[in-house]
């Protein structure tokens, strides 16, 4: 029973990582950059939802939508102001800029909301536990919502990238930016759209994260962000199903590591997994091998 409980909470945590990892993997696939600030977009989304629920008394669904809108706009702004001027620059410069952006968001949040831990309010997401197997197993409803949201997002995104025109444009840009531009695809707009989708998902992830783990501080997003990137790499960066598989596996590994090996070393275990994966299979579980052109 304990094993099953751990497994379910692992899948729940992993689903949050998976939703965050989708943002990383899409941006990495298309803009070829590690958007370090993604984790902090999650934090901003969670704060917006927190304010809407706690201070403005909005219903939960409206709070989530508001958080998504704010994060989407913010994602597009971040891309346009900080990353677009560096489109042609070396990856080192872009990465340092992204780290700067992550710092900027954290410190803005620190100034606006303060360093004190905010306790995320109860909503329909985390108000109850659901008994299973005749009450021998109880699942927090937040975990269930997270897993469902994960599956829905995953299906929607797969349909979007394979069926719609914008989705196909995104795949084209990720495959060959130059050729896509020659075919009349507006590369800048496609990249903006990717950031918009990724950041909107980050807002959902932020709300779900804080529904399961209700402590909200300006650095709430950074650790899950880094772990979600690990998940994206684990699953194969650039691949949407890969982000899903990687995220869920990583969540399960983390919970099992904490439960059966050592609580203090939980993070170390996750990062050790990342290192082993990168050494044995640098393209991840579902990634395509990349060739280097001279």
């Amino acid at each position: 029973m304990i094993f099953l409980n751990n497994l379910i909470s692992g899948i729940g945590l992993g689903s949050i990582y998976a939703i965050i990892a989708l943002g990383y993997t899409m941006v990495y696939g298309i803009a070829k950059m590690l958007n370090f600030a993604h984790g902090d977009v999650i934090m901003v989304g969670a704060y917006i939802a927190f304010c809407s629920l706690q201070y403005w008394g909005l219903p939960p669904v409206v709070a989530i939508l508001l958080a998504m809108v704010v994060c989407t706009v913010m994602g597009v702004l971040i891309e346009g102001l900080a990353y677009r001027p560096l489109r042609q620059a070396a990856s080192l410069a872009v990465l340092i800029t992204a780290i700067g952006m992550s710092y900027l968001l954290q410190n803005l949040a620190l100034l606006i909301w303060g360093a004190n831990t905010k306790s995320f309010p109860r909503t329909f997401l985390n108000s109850s536990t659901i008994p299973l197997l005749g009450g021998r197993l109880s699942i927090p409803s937040a975990t269930l919502f997270t897993i469902v949201a994960n599956v829905v997002i995953m299906i929607a995104l797969t349909l979007f990238t394979s069926r719609t025109k914008m989705g196909k444009a995104m795949r084209c840009v990720s495959e060959d930016r130059g050729a896509a531009e020659l075919m009349g695809i507006n590369v800048n707009r496609t990249i903006s759209l990717t950031f918009a989708i990724g950041s909107g998902l980050a807002a959902i992830a932020g709300v779900l994260l804080c529904s399961s783990y209700p402590n909200l501080t300006p650095t709430t997003g950074s650790m899950p962000g880094i772990k979600a990137f690990t998940a994206a790499v684990f699953g194969g960066i650039g691949s949407i199903p890969g982000a899903m598989v990687g995220g869920v596996l990583l969540g399960v590994i983390e919970i099992f590591g904490k439960a059966y090996i050592s609580t203090e070393l939980g993070d170390a275990i996750v990062f050790a997994v990342l290192i082993i994966v990168l050494l044995l299979k640098p393209t991840g579980l579902l990634g395509k091998p990349m060739r280097e052109k001279v």
Partner: peptide, 11 residues
């Protein structure tokens, strides 16, 4: 590149 950066972070 980015992989190297993230692994040094992990270490």
């Amino acid at each position: 590149g980015d992989y190297l950066a993230i692994v040094t972070l992990a270490f």
